[in-house]
């Protein structure tokens, strides 16, 4: 069953008539060459950008008609740079609550850290002292504060070492299974996409050239997909 559907979505010169669906409870990766429009596509899903033409449906409802702030609470997003506010790990986990003048229970904050395999002793550590891998994990934990239905990940492992990358992949799979969340993940690493994907979207020059079960990427007859798989694009 699809949770998000793009219907003929175009945005400036970046996306051109993109139509496709994301299946609920699965991990879908966005793959394609640089400049394909992957991040732009992702930002459309939680309303950080809007299409010039076309519609995006979330659980069958046009997101343009929805309360944008409520939609964003249901669709969590972790960014490539794992941006943090100044302060401690707790301050950052509390951010999704603090913006509504609420407070995150410290026990809940500790539980979130456990979910991303971090010790609760880190709660009072300044975020400045975190390693790249810890920072990514805190950013992922923070997206779960609002208990989202969909988790958007934008190149979250791009600057991490191979061991940490594999740990984050395992972590995302674990969280996806325990929370039943739908994950949409941009990666420039095709091997990573093969490892983590249930489904894939293949974008090139703002066009969605193929999507569906991840196996298509290695079975496609499309010469454009084949060239990308061979690393020639």
């Amino acid at each position: 069953m699809s949770i998000i559907e793009f219907k003929d979505v175009s945005h400036q010169d970046i996306l051109h008539h993109v139509s496709g669906t994301f299946r609920e409870g699965r991990i879908t990766t966005f793959v394609g060459p640089s400049g394909a429009g992957k991040t732009t596509c992702l930002k459309h899903i939680n309303g950080l950008l809007s299409p010039d033409t076309g519609t995006i449906l979330f659980k069958g409802e046009d997101i343009a008609e929805m309360d944008i702030l409520e939609l964003r609470k249901k669709i969590g997003m972790a960014f490539q740079s794992a941006p943090m506010i100044q302060g401690t790990v707790y301050d950052n986990l509390n951010l999704p609550k603090a913006i509504f003048d609420e407070t995150l229970d410290r026990d809940r904050a500790a539980e979130l850290l456990h979910h991303v395999d971090l010790s609760e002793a880190l709660l009072d550590h300044p975020v400045k002292s975190l390693s790249g891998g810890e920072r990514s994990r805190v950013a992922i934990a923070r997206t779960f504060v609002n208990k989202p239905d969909v988790l958007l990940l934008d190149e979250i492992t791009a600057s991490l070492d191979y061991r940490t990358v594999k740990e984050i992949e395992r972590l995302i799979r674990k969280l996806q299974q325990s929370y039943g969340v739908t994950v949409i993940w941009i990666t420039h690493d095709l091997d990573q996409a093969r490892r983590v994907s249930d489904d894939m979207w293949f974008l090139k020059d703002g066009e969605l050239l193929a999507y569906g079960d991840a196996s298509f990427i290695d079975e496609s007859d499309d010469p454009v997909v084949q060239r990308f798989v061979r690393g020639e694009d």
Binding site: L48, E70, R72, G76, P83, L95, P96, F100
Partner: peptide, 12 residues
């Protein structure tokens, strides 16, 4: 990036 992060979390 922090501004977009807060917007993405549902902040005004």
């Amino acid at each position: 990036d922090v501004i977009e992060l807060i917007l993405s979390l549902g902040g005004t």
